[in-house]
Amino acid sequence: MAFDHVTWIKAASYLGSGLAVGFGAIGAALGEGYTAGKANQVLAYRPRMSGDILKTMLVGQAVAESAAIFALVISMLLVFGGLGGPTPLSAWAYLGAGLAAGLSAVGSGVGSGFPAAAACEGIGRQPKASGQVTLIMLIGSAITQTPCIFGLVIAFLLMFVDFSAKPYYPYWAALLGAGLSTGLAAIGPGAGGGLVGASACKSVARHPEAQRPVTTAMLVGIGTTQSTAIYGFLISLILLFKSFPASTSYVPSFALLGAGFAMGFGGIGPGIGEGITGGYALDQVGRIPEKATLLTRTMLVGQAVSESTGIYSLVVALLLVLNA
């Protein structure tokens, strides 16, 4: 068996492809299943609304599915894209691309299911508000996809930017770390953003006239929930485009890989935590729309505190990258 770099690159792109679609399939399926379950539950006591609820369910599931479709696209490109490269560095780039696309689809897939489920429930309860509920569901689940889109962007950059002039050490770790950082850090914010969107759908169904304050609070809430996904994206961009000196030792490589893991895992918890904060806040914005400003402010302060652990990760990741 000959193990030249062409073999390695092929092997890595097949492995990356498998990881992309494997991880990518987890989240969307969970989210869609949850949506369908809720739709069934509502249909049991609102059988006459079956058309509306079925339509909302399918639209919501389609949005949740798009996370998995992004991962599928990357997976297909890795297998059939005719990708290659002059140096073994490309192997790590393709592995990183698969991980970025796959892992980042987990959170957004689950998350996009929550607003869809809440919308089915809301329409069952308040059939007259069905237009407003569908609109806020679409905005909420589309914005929930943002962490997944960051993963897709990093995957595209890893696959299509030419890194061949860079030294193998420590760049192999930088490329793999870039994929891990965005991919892992997107899991929490994706799921958390969905919790905020779900509460927004519930609130609009309860008080259709509170649509505007709820939309504003929801966008701010999902926006802050995604902060750690943005830090992960930032670390990935630094890992991809900062120039690191060539080295003969393994130490700088592992510092860069560590930075990717630090920000990636560090981003999961704050994303979910901030999503829970935002969800409860949005619940109350729907109940007492005139207190929306106070609630939004308190939500933001609470989210900032719950994000502090993500900021520790960001600081450690930056220190690791700068010392490498």
């Binding site: 960051f150 802050t224 995604q226 943005i230």
Partner: peptide
């Protein structure tokens, strides 16, 4: 970190 998150949110998107 608020400055980083607000500017990278727009830039990243």
């Amino acid at each position: 970190a608020k400055v980083i998150s607000i500017s990278f949110r727009l830039y990243g998107n």
